[in-house]
Design a binder for these strands. Sequence first.
RNA 1: GCAGGAGUAACGAAGUGGUCAAACGUGCGAGACUCAAAAUCUCGUGGCUUAGUGCCUUCAGAGGUUCGAAUCCUCUCUCCUGCACCA
Length: 817
Amino acid sequence: MTKENYDFMRIEKKWQKKWEEKGIFHAKEGKKKKFYSLDMFPYPSGEGLHMGHAFVFSLGDIFARFKRLQGYNVLYPVGYDSLGLPAENAAIKVGIHPEEYTKKSIANFMKQEKAMGWSYDWSRMLKTSDPNYYKWDQWIFLKLFEKGLAYRKKSPVNWCPKCQTVLANEQVVSGKCWRHEDTRVELRHLEQWFLKITDYAEELLSGLDKIDWPQRAKLIQRNWIGRSEGTEILFEINKEKWPIFTTRPDTIFGVTFMVVSAQHPKLIELVTDKQKKEVEKFLNKIKSVSEKEMEEMEKEGVFTGSYAINPMNNEQIPIYAGNFVVADYGSGMVMSVPAHDQRDFEFAKKYKLPIKQVISGGDVKKEAYTEAGILKNSGEFNGLSSEEAREHITKVLEFRKIGKKKIQYKLRDWLISRQRYWGAPIPIIYCNKCGVVPVSEKNLPIKLPEKVKFGKGNPLETNKEWVNVKCPKCGGKARRETDTMDTFVNSSWYYLRYADSKNKNKIFDSNKANYWAPVDQYIGGPEHITGHLIYIRFYTKFLRDLGLLKFDEPALRYFTQGIVHASDGERMSKSKGNIIEPLGIIEKHGADTLRLALVSFASPDKDTNWNEKILSGSYKFLNNLYNFFDNLKPDKKNVKLESKLNKTIKEVTQDIEDFQYNLAAIKIRELFEYIEKGTTKKTAEIFLKLLSPFCPHITEELWEKLGNKGFISLEQWPEADEKKINDQFDKEEKAITSLINDVNNVAGIVKEKGNSFSRLFLYTIPSETEMYKNNLEEISKRTGLQTKVFSVADGEKHDPENKSKKAKPGRPGIFLD
RNA sequence: GCAGGAGUAACGAAGUGGUCAAACGUGCGAGACUCAAAAUCUCGUGGCUUAGUGCCUUCAGAGGUUCGAAUCCUCUCUCCUGCACCA
């Protein structure tokens, strides 16, 4: 019989339709143990799904299906992070309204997602661009505002000239815009909205110990939060107290100058008339440095004319403005100890400032000695260790009320204002009389007005009817806030909305949210570690503090998938024209083939380059599989197969749990090789279950063909019976393989000598005769020779060349004739 | 500069102290089937050697620990990722 390619198109459509009709993936609260499996929802771009999406969502789907089969009540929802810049840029470029663009994009996404066979609960689908969704973004904002966690501040902010908007720190990647790798962000002083994420810094840090995330992800977050313990010290400058932060109060006697950030908002107060010109010259100079120079910039500064008084020894120390001090960390000013800090050392050398050693060790004429040590030149503290001195000096400062212990974080408050249209409007009204007035909850949502002009500046400002409103407090003239919220606001709580996505009266029902959440398994790209994954943790803690949630962390387990690059190793992008769309592959080979190929290719956490060739192996396998099961004639029970089956169940279960899908796929294939030699119906069914998370369509079809009613997707995952696992069979397998090697080896030599043969005679030691006889068929097939097995003790054996004397344990004698 | 990860056959990739170097897949080569091809199936794919034995080489490089190292330690090289003046 010739083998035909199986009709994957018909089968896949058939089962996708059945799943949908019966709604078998709809999650309902219940008594069963729940499992919440979530992939980071996509931004629905006009380009549609690419291979990276196909990969990561397949990983999630396999996990969700696996957990469902294991008997969990699984929530595996789907949605769209549909507010964002690309929609708006399309509006500017091609004149299509963001609403329309988004609608089309989502429709396109849905079509592809369904074609992949992902087992989403479509009934809970959400879009962040839906006013019924962003209403709750606004509601959370009001709550934050109420608690003093949303505030307005004029501050130097990152401005992307291409996006025409402000960016959060997390959206600035080495000085450039996260969306425009070629665009350097500018510094602007603007009045902006911030969320006080720093109030949760400590908990964001300590919470990491409680969750099962990759070490790398935790480490990156720890560094990003950047906790350091130190002392805040007040220095007197022009009769005023200025705070500075230091981790080395033990070196305070070595302070020989101070440096204030060139971007410090109160810098001007320090500049004397005499130094004004010099300082201005300096500020202009650092403004004009190009990005390259920024990276390898020398430490530079200028004397401000002012002096500070060292509170410990009353020395007068000059204050410089410098380019290397970060304005919004600590207080934007540092005490400089050139003997014990490399940066201060370089600065002192350049401007010939004194270097005073106060910790013994090193050679401070050559370089800063930054280690801890014993104090000297430090008055009454001489002889103390650095550690003791930190304590003592801080205590003295505390006693004199000019200093205190302080914990400082690198984490900054989250700047959420965006001067763009396609985001959730900030529910605030500015009244000339009453000032900043929050919109009342009952007036939410503040919907985006449809009629606006795109192109220049913030489109919302172009709709005067929308902007000009009456003050909710006094009824007088007022105007709306035209800034919208950062897109990451929307994704900071979406996982909770899935628990109750249709609720019109509340953000979500707490009981439902507490039943489903937290997420048990979250999957998403590594690029979100310092952005989204910090925000979502912050929001969770805030909503908990509002009394809505009973847990602290949004995601208990997190898996970072590898990135699928284009075949040339480049990032897939439209501009490079190297995007591979899954739909084309599905039409050619089927979704099951693609899914299997994607996970067989490499370990899911590794970056890969897309290669169309990976499909053929999976395609062949599925064809063989289909043809075999289509004509299945069940065989007798076979202990060897039972052993293999149970071993495979055990290993595959663990592999899926550990996201080693590539290994699971291999083991499933190996099992099939055994099954092909003959199987019981029951074993065949278990095999289909093992494969079903990976290839759900073909397994549903074959499950049905074997006479089963109902869906394999809702079956029970098999459990391994360890008693049936017998390693003896593995050894047997190895013995056969080595025999085949030997036979082929001999055959090669014989052929080289010009002799031909068609029969194979084996002479085994008596205890092994049976084993080889049992595998006769296999040996015949693999060598292509008619085979006979004799025991060496058999007096009747055909052995003209006395090869039986070569027989050894595990190695029969061989004769070719 | 700092931190983390990686380097295994032509390629992708398993293996993380002995059982064991290279599972599995692609590619390539040979054979079977076929009038022929595709598909499919079988075998091979570091070197030498041999009626199947044996020997050597190899896990980026160099050292070390160990009876024994791809695996543990040290140094060096290359690549990737994150943070980069955070006082």
